[in-house]
Simulated assay, not measured.
Amino acid sequence: MKNTNILYQHGTLALLVPGLLKGTLTMGELLKHGDTGIGTGEGLDGELVILDGVPYQVLGTGEVRIMKNEATIPFGNIHWADFKPAGDIKKLALPKLEEHILKNHSANSFFSVKIKGHFSGVTTRAVIKSNPPYKTLAQTASDQRIFERDTVEGTLLGYFAPALFAGAAVGGFHWHFLAADHNFGGHVLSIDGINGQLTFQDLSSLDLHLPTDDADFMNHDFNKESDILKVISEAE
């Protein structure tokens, strides 16, 4: 039986900071743990949006393709979808949506949010894939492309992690978007207007999987990394 209360996460945001961007888990393996999620490819190769078990990869060129099972990732979140309706959203900008959610839910637990509907003023980004030797997260993420749509139908998918877990995950909200026609998406920078049904799923457990088979990760001294949370915040 699929446990819909578990958020499975491969890797951490903190390990990306010094440039540990090697793919250390296959997409096929990730999909054994859920059908809905977000993440990035090896070398920060674009932005992942996993819906109904299909891993869509928004590349730095703007192209959207389906990631193959043998492709690898350094970081990803996934869970088994069991979203519950939580009311209709009309003409809310993204910050107001976040305020609305946190007025009705504690900020001390993990949860996922999905909205299918009509969106206006959507700005996303995707990072251009880098190759070894990898640079730091901040340096790699600076080579990104910005995409915009005045109006678009699609799905907004997000995860919320308590501030206590910042570094392991993205503290607060982390949003990705995929257009209904699969021709636009990425990591969300801003949305001016959101119209659709808000659906919500509590995730009471975090299953954190670390790349212990990767020598670079196992031998890295994270104690020497300074301002990890600041770097993550700027990169996101």
Results as ranks from 00 to 15, higher is better:
A161G: 08
V152C: 02
S112I: 09
A141E: 04
P133F: 05
F110Y: 15
F110D: 04
F111T: 01
T140K: 02
A163D: 15
V122A: 02
P162G: 13
N104P: 01
S142W: 12
K116A: 09
T136P: 01
S130M: 11
Y134D: 07
K90P: 03
E153Y: 15
G121R: 06
A161R: 00
F111R: 01
R145T: 14
R149L: 10
S109H: 11
G121A: 13
A166K: 11
G158Y: 02
S142C: 14
Y134Q: 07
R149Y: 11
E148P: 01
P133V: 06
D150W: 13
N131H: 15
K129G: 06
I115H: 00
A163W: 15
I101W: 00
G117F: 09
I89C: 03
I89M: 04
H118V: 06
T124D: 04
K114D: 04
S112G: 15
Q144G: 03
A86I: 02
F83C: 04
H118Q: 10
D150H: 15
G121S: 08
D88T: 15
K84Y: 07
I128R: 14
Q139A: 11
F160G: 01
N131W: 15
D143P: 08
Q139T: 14
K129M: 08
I101A: 00
Y134S: 04
I89F: 03
F111E: 00
D88H: 12
A86P: 01
A93T: 05
Q139E: 14
R125W: 08
R149S: 08
S120C: 14
P162Y: 14
E99P: 02
G117N: 09
D88K: 14
A126C: 07
I128H: 15
P95L: 04
L164I: 12
N104W: 05
S142K: 14
A161N: 07
G154A: 10
D82C: 03
D143A: 12
A168C: 13
G121N: 07
I101Y: 00
N104Q: 13
E99D: 11
A163E: 14
S120A: 15
K129P: 03
V113M: 02
E148K: 13
S130Y: 10
N108I: 06
F119E: 00
L102V: 03
T155K: 11
E153W: 12
A166F: 09
E98N: 07
L102E: 03
G117W: 03
L164G: 13
A168L: 12
A161Y: 01
G87M: 04
A107N: 12
A163F: 10
A161Q: 06
K135M: 10
L92C: 04
R125K: 15
A168Q: 14
H105S: 02
K103D: 10
A169K: 01
A161P: 03
